[in-house]
Amino acid sequence: MEILIPVLVLGAMGLVFGSGLALASKIFEVKQDERIPQVRNELPGANCGGCGYPGCDALAEAIVNGEAEVNTCPVGGAPVAAKIGEIMGLEVEETEPQVAHIMCHGTHDVAPVRAEYYGLNDCRDAFNANGGTKSCRYGCLGYGSCVASCPFDAIHMGEDGIPIVDEEKCTACATCVATCPKDVIQIVPKNQNIFVSCSNTEPAKYVKPTCTVGCIGCRMCTRVCPTNSITVTDNLASINYDTCINCGLCVEKCPANAITGDKIEGNLEEYMKEHPDFDPNGKPAPRRRKEAAA
């Protein structure tokens, strides 16, 4: 009895309050678009915020209200967008899968440190201590804040102090992009292989002492690129991923080894078939003075 009575009392109270609430929920019912829970069910539920909304619930509501596109969720990608499109009765354009990429390959052996750092093993803390210890002020600090921030376990710290993105797991949610105090992570198309793995915008004479693989802004790549996909702004080369054919010529020619990646075999040959007058071994086109001056 000593156990039964309290259980019964609490049970009865729960029942009374519960039925009261059930009644109240009928009285105060808010008509919700039935597509919101449907869309919400299709979303991955990671609540990563990669879409720019506070979570999957908010995104579902925004999609149904027409404030967001059905393919806004970067994590779910095309399959989720297709399902949501079905619910919303819309045709969906295929989105190209994307991944994060670290725009720095200044590993321990090529980019020296300029000071000792004793503190929390966290990039943002190290960054607060006078910008971190790497001599290059633009490079990856290597304390792995992005590794810790990744909700999908898709970034791991390499042995040489630069994180490695697991392209299979990466969903391009951009949490790491927001975390990185140095802004060296970018979201790039998944089928892109060649990158300017450097973020240093300083002239060569300041880049060279701090990192032996930093982009010195020499424009060699812009001249060798068959599709004119590379531009140099602020002493830093950048590739237009829409037109790049991943031929790898810039990787071979880059005197600073700042451009990295594996070329896709055959793409250059295909290009040369279409453009017979292009000679990959020929003299680079003369530097255009106007562009150089600008």
């Binding site: 309050f17 519960g18 009261g20 609430l21 109240a24 929920s25 105060f28 019912e29 808010v30």
Partner: peptide, 12 residues
């Protein structure tokens, strides 16, 4: 229970 009730009322 009361909080649930308030939540419903405010939502409405």
């Amino acid at each position: 229970t009361l909080v649930q009730l308030v939540e419903m009322i405010i939502k409405k």
